[in-house]
Every structure is written in structure tokens, then in C-alpha cells.
């Protein structure tokens, strides 16, 4: 086992997959000479050259579309978006093209491409750089969407995404790049579509993905101090969604809190909460709770921006409600 940062784990995955398959190449703003805006591609230009590590102009619609075309013609592009906020400029290429080509061609074509970059709020970045946009991608049939929350999953899911024959959107996070964790030294893959049980417990299910795992694990520790054991489901893969693991947890606990840093309306979190409410109705001892980002554009002020995001405190509040316990 080696301890790697999330950033290093992504770098290792890219490096190994580029070494393994000459059709894999990386394209995006600052990925080459600058070593990546967040240093995820550090050293790859020197190792693989400018043919395979391509610095693009600031032209998200353009280079995202080029990636789709290159994938149709047989390559395996990894397109780095400096953030998912900027990917909104390329939404057309992902939604109308990458996700549709196989179906519109009656199964003749495939689009093996990875779109990846940081998603969700970091710190002091204000409204246009702090959005959690998972539901934009999760909404679209024809895409796969993953959100690794640990260095090991970042490594294993990115490798699986690159080898998958479909367009896969990878949600990373600026705050997570420096997170550390154990990553086995031997090569491994994490399959798309499988959740991770991050913590075992019998009293309530806390369900989340991506960066809020941190607040969720903090909340689980605080609950433990009160004698309450939380089962923590890290979804990891949003599309396809591992509904079985989700329901298995709720079957065990009968109580569920969903935590998602996105806005609450039509979000992945609201969808998951609906799925649990609908499919586990007879198993539930309380209505499902959703802890989301507040329904506002992100403010710059630090106290305000923290108040806009899920926190251990907010999760504890939701836990009180599903447990009908005012004393915790």
C-alpha cells in the first residue's frame, strides 16, 4: 500500500492507461506545459509528448467536440475541463452529440471518451466557480457519470472510465485533490456502477457521493459518540446507479438521509431520495431526509459560503429527524 493524494492517484491512472494504450490521449487547457491547472497531469507532457498531451486554447465547446469526433474515429480521448463550470460552454457537445451518436446511428458507432475535472464548491470562488453540476450529466441517457471520493476510487474509476466504450463524465473536486489515502501498489480497476460501503452501521443510512463524504463521516463519528451507528453508502457511480446497494443499506436501517452538495431542485440527491422513498416505502420508519446545498448562487463571503453547503451539523439535524431523537 502506498499513501497517495487524490491528485497523484488520478495522475497514476492517466499515466498507466496512456502507457497501456497508444490511442489514449489527454486534451485540455493547461494540461501540458503548465502540468495541469491542478497538477493532475504533472509530468505527462515530458513522458508522452505534445501529440498525446495537447494544450488547447480556451475553447471548451471546440475541444470537447473534437474529443467526441476523435472518439468516433477510434481514439480514446480524455478531455480535461478546468472546472465543470466551464463545461457548460460544451454542454451541447456532451448532451447532443457524445450521448446520442450510438443511438442515432442504430448502434453503429461508439464514443469512448472521458470528460473530467473538478466539480462543486471550493473556497472563496463565488457564484460562477462553485457550482455542483452532477445532475446536469446524470440527467442524460447515453452518458455514464462517476464521482470518486477517495484516492483509491479516483485511480480505479478513472482507469475503468478510460477503458469503457461509452462517454463517461468524472466529477472530481478541487478540495479533494490534496486528500490522502491508501492506494494498493498493484494495478486494479473499480467497476462503474458499484457503490462503496464506507462505514457499517445498523441505525440509519447516510447516502452521499463526492466531497460531502467528509462531512458525512464526521457526522457518523459524532453519532457514534451518542451510541448511534450509521451505515454510510458512497454511491461513487451516479449513472448507472447501484440501487441494490442503496436498498440493501436501507433494508438494514429503515432510515435514510441523502447528502448532496448540489442545489436541491431536480438534483441527484432528490432523485436518490425519491428512489428510496418509493422503493423502500414499507421498510422506512421515517420520511427520507435530503441535506443539499442551499438553493442560492454561491456567495464569496466565507461564513456565507460555508452556510450554503452541507455540514456535519446539518446532517446531524437530519439524523435527529429520521431517528425521532431530539437528544442527539
Amino acid at each position: 500500500m502506498a499513501e497517495l493524494t487524490y491528485r497523484e492517484a488520478l495522475n497514476r491512472a492517466l499515466d498507466e492507461e496512456m502507457a497501456r494504450d497508444p490511442k489514449v490521449f489527454l486534451m485540455g487547457e493547461e494540461v501540458g506545459e503548465y502540468d495541469g491547472a491542478y497538477k493532475v497531469s504533472k509530468g505527462l507532457l515530458g513522458k508522452y509528448g505534445a501529440r498525446r498531451v495537447r494544450d488547447t486554447p480556451i475553447s471548451e465547446l471546440g475541444f470537447t467536440g473534437l474529443g467526441v469526433g476523435a472518439a468516433l474515429a477510434g481514439l480514446r480521448p480524455v478531455v480535461e475541463w478546468m472546472t465543470h463550470n466551464f463545461a457548460l460552454l460544451a454542454l451541447d457537445q456532451v448532451v447532443n452529440n457524445a450521448a446520442k451518436m450510438r443511438q442515432m446511428s442504430g448502434g453503429q458507432l461508439k464514443v469512448p471518451i472521458v470528460f473530467r475535472g473538478p466539480n462543486g464548491p471550493a473556497e472563496f470562488l463565488a457564484a460562477q466557480h462553485s457550482q455542483a453540476l452532477a445532475s446536469y450529466w446524470a440527467h442524460v441517457p447515453g452518458l455514464k457519470v462517476v464521482a470518486p471520493a477517495t484516492p483509491a476510487d479516483a485511480y480505479g474509476l478513472l482507469k475503468s472510465a478510460i477503458r469503457d466504450d461509452n462517454p463517461v463524465v468524472v466529477l472530481e473536486s478541487e478540495m479533494m485533490y490534496a486528500w490522502k489515502g491508501e492506494v494498493p501498489e498493484e494495478e486494479f480497476l473499480v467497476p462503474l456502477g458499484k457503490a462503496r460501503l464506507a462505514r457499517e452501521g445498523r441505525d440509519l443510512s447516510l447516502v452521499t457521493f463526492s466531497k460531502p463524504i467528509k462531512a458525512v463521516m464526521e457526522a457518523a463519528e459524532l453519532l457514534r459518540a451518542k451510541g448511534i451507528e450509521a451505515d454510510v453508502v458512497d454511491l461513487r457511480s451516479i449513472r448507472p446507479l447501484d440501487e441494490e446497494s442503496l436498498y440493501a443499506s436501507v433494508r438494514k436501517t429503515g432510515r435514510c438521509v441523502v447528502v448532496d452538495e448540489s442545489w436541491p431542485v431536480a438534483s441527484v440527491g432528490s432523485h436518490v431520495a425519491w428512489l428510496v422513498s418509493h422503493n423502500c416505502f414499507d421498510l422506512l420508519d421515517a420520511p427520507v431526509e435530503l441535506v443539499s446545498g442551499e438553493d442560492v448562487p454561491m456567495p464569496y463571503n466565507h461564513s456565507l459560503e460555508l452556510a450554503a453547503q452541507p455540514s456535519a451539523d446539518k446532517i446531524l439535524g437530519a439524523a435527529r429527524r429520521v431517528l425521532y431523537r431530539e437528544d442527539i
Partner: peptide, 15 residues
């Protein structure tokens, strides 16, 4: 929207 895709096909041909 096919213009970037076509350009990407040409990128694959050059690659």
C-alpha cells in the same frame, strides 16, 4: 455542432 466533431475526426486522422 457537427463542425467540432468533424474536426476531431481529422484530429484522429492526423494522430
Amino acid at each position: 455542432a457537427q463542425i467540432p466533431i468533424a474536426t476531431g475526426v481529422a484530429l484522429a486522422q492526423a494522430y
